[in-house]
Amino acid sequence: MTSLLEQTPSLLNVVLLALAAVALLAVVLGFVTYAIYFERKIIGWMQLRPGPNRVGPLGLLQTVADVAKLLLKEDTRPKSADKALFALAPVLAYGPAFAVLAVMPFSENIGFADLGIGVLYYIALSSITILGVITAGWASNNKWSLIGGLRSAAQMISYEVPLVMSVVGIILMTGSLNLRDIVEAQRDVWNIIPQFFAFCVFLIAAQAELNRSPFDLPEAESELVAGYHVEYSGFRFAMFMLAEYVYMFGMGSLITILFLGGWLPPIEALGFIPGIVWFILKFSLYVFLQFWLRATMPRIRADQLMSFAWKGLLPVALINILLTAFFVSYSNGSF
């Protein structure tokens, strides 16, 4: 697929690329549909209830029915909302969520763009979503959504710092910002072992970035009713929901690539199994962790959330960078 990008653009190339993008979109939408289904099922099982089981066999079509309902719903907009921004916000939130998937290498040969600065691209684009969230909170002209929007802006900006800092260690070790190179550098040992602290920091910061439990403050339904999307319904709400789950897809891919060795098998002997299977397995493990946490954790308090990011995670990430830099220099014989 990468080779397509490098050819001179012709009609055929463009159509092929567009088809590939649509195929990825279909995969992502399929993932979102069944991630929501399994989220509800797994949390249901953990809470000793069966979960969705009415629509379709085993409730498999539940999410399809839910989405259909959202799409067919009347598009309501509060009278005093800012018309243009209100419509723009869901697009701002969803657009980058899908765009970040362009750099993800899912296996040796499945992947789209092979950017030299893949990590940077992901982090830079994913920040745009915050704008969507603030815009939504502001444009709705609702006090709850304003508080929710501001909270989530503060949260996502704060946690972006330790998130980026924790990746620096890996970049130092690999010497590259390219996601493919990072995976290939994990042939001997996955980054989760030498970079364990970074992994912990990244995992926690990723939860906060995704606005998922225990950091689901922006939409804390028991405090802020529904946070920034309180006034959204129907299709626009579906866009926010989609953005959230697509980010889960993106973050799951990223964590697999950065820390869990991407498509590499855990031991060389299992190399005959295609890389994509390993990728899906590791990725599913991360997604399961999300559901598991959601079934267990209470929500952290807003002020503690901030101090945890700046006083807890950031120092750990910085120390990790320092230690990594020291060891990398040492092994290069700089001392």
Binding site: I42, G44, W45, M46, Q47, L48, R49, P50, W292, L293, A295, T296, M297
Partner: peptide
């Protein structure tokens, strides 16, 4: 503390539902 809670919910995953 929270690991205990996670262990508890994981154990419940396979239990029979009471619905």
């Amino acid at each position: 503390g929270f690991a205990k809670g996670l262990g508890f919910t994981l154990k419940k995953l396979t239990e029979k539902s009471v619905t």
